[in-house]
Design a protein around this nucleic acid. Structure first.
Lengths: 228, 228
DNA sequence: ACTCACACGTGAATC
DNA sequence: TGATTCACGTGTGAG
């Protein structure tokens, strides 16, 4: 939850939406500047009407706002990729990110040494992405059974999903499940090469079979290979 | 390089330094200017005369300074652990850190998959099978897709077997595979409750599809539920 | 000149 | 209560 109930500024990532008129008006009203329609009020010179002064203006107000928004957005994104966040704070986010990076680097090192000690074929320990890319499925491969829904009795099912690994895919599957009020009792995922197999044990309360078929089709659409 | 030639405060957060008193006085002298920014105006004395207002209010001035220092220090540390920094900027530092974390995670995943393909060991992992016998399948449950054979191209297949756990079953499956000259490249088995799902990555040299169908039927006969 | 990035002090909100 | 975090607007250098 955002600590400040502030008007959500444009930081929506890629979109170049530049609309912050409301905030501008608010600031203007605070500076006894009751401009009704316009919000431009951006000139390089003071225009003090005779009488009271106190014309505060800044050249780079918008730029600074954008900068803050970008930086904040990056911190948010950083918090997204770090698994264990101790506190919802900028400082903790950075600390956790540092720890996570160190841990990942250690893990990579350890896996590399383990892989080097493996008494197998030496050609596969390239340590690069090349070996897995040589294993992409052929064009004519027919994927039967990418998504399977096996009833186990009462309202419980086994849901098996076989997919090619892509970023963000797993999140989409989870969102689809939650949108159907599916409770995940247990989950196992195994991966090898570029593929992954997930094995859910789910429970749905009071749903008919037709709804489950619908869910199955939705999942199939999510995990299907995008147009070879 | 520090952009600001400021007097080095106790940035590390820990120890209290005596310089804070001077800084307080300095801040007092700056008070009626609103904006912080300029600090090179070294006038020296402050000493507000009693007639003037100059209510020097600084509730959490040094606390905020410490917070900024800590946060900045964290960004610096983050920049230290990320190898390739594109620009010396906070925003770029965060972006590069995010990219680096993603890259490291992908690398870990890939190394793990490579490590999982170590030949020789094919051991069965047993989960906590004792949790619930209350989860036995009902009588009328129809098991579709107990055994699946998914071609991956050339002579490689994915073999998925879903079964109810029984003693000796896994050995029978392995024997069947070996009798068909099937090489097991990788194997994962996950278990939960009374069920198990095995996921073979196999390679068969020079076999036609009809033989594979035969093998599939054999496996289905092995793992099928034995006639209640 | 002008843009960008930064640090600063402060009010407000949350714990 | 106060301690802590955050967003804000502004001043100021570097490129």
């Amino acid at each position: 939850m955002p600590r400040r109930p502030r008007a959500a500024r444009g930081g929506g990532g890629g979109g170049g939406t530049a609309e912050e008129v409301k905030m501008e008006d608010f600031v203007e009203s605070m500076l006894n500047f009751g401009g009704g329609g316009g919000d431009e009020s951006e000139d390089g010179e003071q225009l003090p009407p005779p009488g009271e002064a106190t014309e505060y203006k800044s050249k780079n107000l918008d730029a600074e706002r954008r900068r803050r928004s970008r930086l904040n957005n990056n911190i948010l994104a950083l918090r997204a990729v770090v698994p264990n966040i101790t506190k919802m704070s900028k400082e903790s986010t950075l600390s956790d990110a540092i720890d996570h990076i160190k841990k990942l680097q250690n893990e990579v090192l350890e896996l590399q040494t383990q892989l080097a000690d493996s008494p197998g074929e030496a050609r596969e320990k390239q340590g690069s992405a090349s070996c897995s890319e040589s294993f992409v499925p052929a064009d004519n491969v027919h994927y039967q059974g990418q998504v399977e829904l096996i009833p186990l009795g009462s309202c419980k099912y086994n849901l098996k999903i076989f997919w090619t690994k892509r970023v963000g895919l797993f999140t989409k599957v989870l969102e689809a499940l939650y949108s159907y009020n599916v409770q995940v009792l247990s989950l196992n995922t195994i991966t090898f090469y570029g593929y992954a197999e997930s094995f859910f044990s789910i429970e749905v309360k009071g749903e008919q079979d037709v709804v489950m078929v619908e869910l199955r089709n939705l999942l199939s659409g999510i995990v299907e290979v995008p147009s070879i």
